[in-house]
Design a binder for these strands. Structure first.
Length: 293
DNA sequence: TGCCAGGTATAGG
DNA sequence: CCTATACATGGC
């Protein structure tokens, strides 16, 4: 089925944007996304102009699952235009990151994934998450077709394991997934969800601050990880995770001030553009201004 | 080899 | 309140 997506999706940038760790580019420009027990194959149709995609989902699944997943309702072009005229860095970052969407992913997967992420680089995070899926997740056979491209796709994929599927995981099991010292943190998350100390669904009724604080009762969830779960798992677009990259930007470019918070409900989106820009340009983006003279 | 990666918990001041 | 340090593992 062919769909049009306003303002465009840049699938490669999304894959590399550091918010999702299981997105994969297959051959022929086909990207695979996994969300809960659904798998989407999607391919850009550049010959039709901007914003057209061949997707494996039918129109109902696209509207119900994937359009919300890509945060389709939000006007990112409009958000780009709210950036301050004087803010050269953020304007460049937003332009560079055009086509990135802040994905609305599964809170449980975000909880485990971002506990895993601490003190790891993105390739290492992907490795661990994949091992968790292979070891504990349900195996799913896919049968899909991209009609415009005549591409047939059939694979066996491991879904991200549910809390119940992780019930019997041991510290040793988790360390085999290269989780190292984070294994006890993951065990604490599993336990608190299974015994009802924390209800990830119910948490969505809380406001941003309460949600942010509630998640931190889990061992291994601090400010940064909690912000990531809020932003990527609960669609709280005003929350701004400050990791080493964002901290570097704040310190070197903005004199220690977190300007992303100026953008209220869109600060997290600005942060995502800045993160991607800074990481992809290897930290050189910051120096470019000072070195021009 | 040494340093860093989408940090956090803990101890000590 | 603050700062210093340990923590597993892999890539460069």
């Amino acid at each position: 089925m062919v769909i049009r997506f306003e303002d465009g999706l840049d699938l490669k940038k999304i894959e590399d944007s550091g918010q999702c760790f299981r997105v994969k580019e297959l051959s022929d420009g086909v990207f695979r996304f996994v969300h809960k027990d659904r798998v989407l194959y999607i391919r850009g149709l550049s010959d039709r102009g901007e914003g057209f995609y061949d997707v494996s989902a039918d129109s109902e699944e696209w509207e119900d699952i994937w359009f919300p997943y890509f945060d389709g309702k939000r006007n990112y072009a409009g958000i780009r235009q709210t950036i301050s005229e004087q803010d050269d860095f953020l304007r460049r970052a937003a332009e560079y990151g055009k086509g990135i969407r802040v994905l609305c992913q599964d809170p449980w997967e975000m909880l485990i994934t971002f506990i895993t992420s601490q003190r790891k680089n993105i390739p290492a995070i992907k490795k661990s998450v994949e091992l968790i899926c292979e070891r504990f997740g349900r195996k799913e056979k896919t049968e899909a077709i991209l009609s415009e491209s005549d591409i047939v796709l059939s694979e066996e994929i491991y879904l991200f394991p549910s809390p119940g599927e992780l019930r019997d995981a041991t510290d040793e099991d988790l360390r085999l997934c290269k989780l190292g010292y984070r294994a006890p943190y993951i065990l604490d998350a599993i336990n608190k969800v299974l015994n009802g100390d924390i209800d990830l669904c119910k948490l969505n009724e809380l406001d941003d601050v309460q949600l942010f604080e509630s998640l931190k009762i889990i061992n291994g969830v601090g400010d940064k990880v909690s912000n990531c779960i809020c932003l990527f798992g609960y669609g709280r677009m005003g929350l701004v995770p400050v990791d080493t990259w964002i901290a570097r930007i704040i310190n070197l470019e903005y004199n220690g001030k977190n300007v992303f918070l100026n953008y209220e409900d869109n600060g997290g989106i600005m942060q995502q553009w800045a993160f991607y820009y800074e990481r992809e340009t290897g930290g050189k983006a910051l120096l470019s201004e000072g070195e021009k003279g």
